[in-house]
Every structure is written in C-alpha cells, then in structure tokens.
Amino acid sequence: MVETFPVTKHKNTVQLAGFGLGLFLFPWVAQRIPYLDHYMDVMVFVGIYSIMTIALCLLMGYAGQISLGHASFFGLGAYISGVITTKYGLNPWFCLVVGMVVSAAVALAIGAPSLKLRGHYLAMATLAFCIIITIIFNETMAVTGGPDGLAFIPGIGIMGYALDSVVKYYYLVWGVVFVVLLVCLNIIRSRVGRALRSIHGSELAASAMGVNVAKYKIWVFVLSAVLASVAGSLYAHYLNFINPASFDLFVSIKLLIMIILGGMHSLWGAIVGAALVTFLSYEWLQYFEEAEVMIYGAIVLLIVIFLPGGVVSIPEKVGSLWRR
C-alpha cells in the first residue's frame, strides 16, 4: 500500500502570516459581535487542545503510531501545576517546567520499551497507562482531591503582569500554539520529518535506508507528551479548577477524533480538528448531553470511510472534481 504525502517544499510563510493575523484580530472582531463574544472563551480551549493535537499529529500522521494516553500527560501537567501552586505556592512557570520534565520522563519510560517493537504496542501500553492514571487521580484524595477535583488554582502572569482576562489568556495560549506550529512545521521539512514520513511509509524500508526507526518514534512521542503537559498546565491556570474526568480515556479518544476529523497528515488539520471538536462539545452538542458519544462515533466512521484525508482535504477534492 502506497501512501503519498504532500511534500511541502515552500515555506508556509503566507499561510502562517494569514493565520497569525487572523488570530490577532479575532478578539477585536468577536467582542464587537453579540452572540460571538463568549467564543473567546471557547477559543482559549481550542488553543489548549491545538497545542496537543499538533504534536499528536506528528506522532499519528507521520510516525504512524496511536497514543491513547495523551489525556494523561495533559492531566499530569494540570495536576502537577495545580497541586504544587495551591499547596506550596510556587511560581506557576516553575511548575509548568516541572510538569514538562515529569511528563518527558514518564513518556520515555512507557514509550521506549513499546516503541522498540514493531507494530502498535504503544496503543496498548498508553491505553493501560491512561486508565491507571485516571484511577490514581481519583484515589489519591489527599493530594488531588479525588473525584471532586482540585479548586482555587491561582492564575498565571508574566513578570508580575497578571493574565487575568480571557483576552489576555487568549493571546498567551495562541502565542504558544503559534510557536509550536512553527517548530513542528520546521520539523516536518527537516531531516527528522523525512525520516518520520519514511517510517510511516514502510518501517522496513526506512530502517534499510539507515533511519533509526525506534529513536525517531520515541523522540516524537516524548515531544508530544511534553507539549500535552504544557497544555495541561495552561488549562489548570485558566480554569482554576481540575477534576479527573477532564483527563480520562474519553479525552484521549477525543484528541484522536480531532486529528482524524481535521486530517491526519496535516498540521493545519490538527488545528482545524481541535477547533471543530471543541466547538462541537462546548457549544453545538450541548443539548445532546451524553448522546454526543454517538455523534462522535458516527463522525469517526464517516470520516474514515468517505474522507480519509479529513476536513482539510475537502478543498483539494472539490478542486479535482471541478477540473474534471
């Protein structure tokens, strides 16, 4: 089976500039249109999820591995930030870094043994990991507050300037997204990116060409775990409240759905997918309550069968129909 990837030779300067400008102007527009002003709040969550999906897209779309444990790294970041800042009053930025280090170590411990093997052992290992972490969050009441969650997490500031409004936090989160996107777009175009694509194409061929398959897969897994932890810290300081349900297996699968829906082989798709699923679950599907599970299932099946390239492949498909 041969899969072709869109090889991006040109630098995405135009798209990036447009994307950045759009993000910069969005608050200005949204705050002037009634009914849209609360979209700012949703957009903060879109940003937080995008930080995770961009890196996860590298892992799934390029290294060809499924992780069902990213909600746990998200949770590790959130709980490390939440617990240390509320119990010991340390600087939130310091806690964010602690979360990154811990997540990297955990990801290495889980990823290294399972990624050295061929096949999808990572999916199984992370599945088990995710459920274990959720149970630990629920059971260690003294530290995490158990199922009731952890409240009164302080906000975050830069050099004494408190990011105390939605708009300020919006700029912080999307600033991080922009940097992550920039870095990951560069990774794809670099030697590492070509190696990752070759692994997805054929592990055997890649290793025959001298690509250290295991090393690259572990590297991407650890990177995506660290970014998920950053997203978790930002989430905790934004909401000021966390509970285990925000980091369970369902969230891991939601991240998966974001990537499938947006388009597995495109980093832009990761952001589009994060936006669509976040708006679906925070806004459009609220009336369905728990039945949203069914709608997500239907979306996944429809995408997998009829639109394997995800939403970002629609323009291309329409274009090819037009030319015919």
Partner: peptide, 11 residues
Amino acid sequence: ATIGASFLIRG
C-alpha cells in the same frame, strides 16, 4: 474505525 463503532454502539 472500531473505536468509532464502539462509541456508536455505546451511545
């Protein structure tokens, strides 16, 4: 696809 199907059945 089977993850999607499991969501559908559960719902």
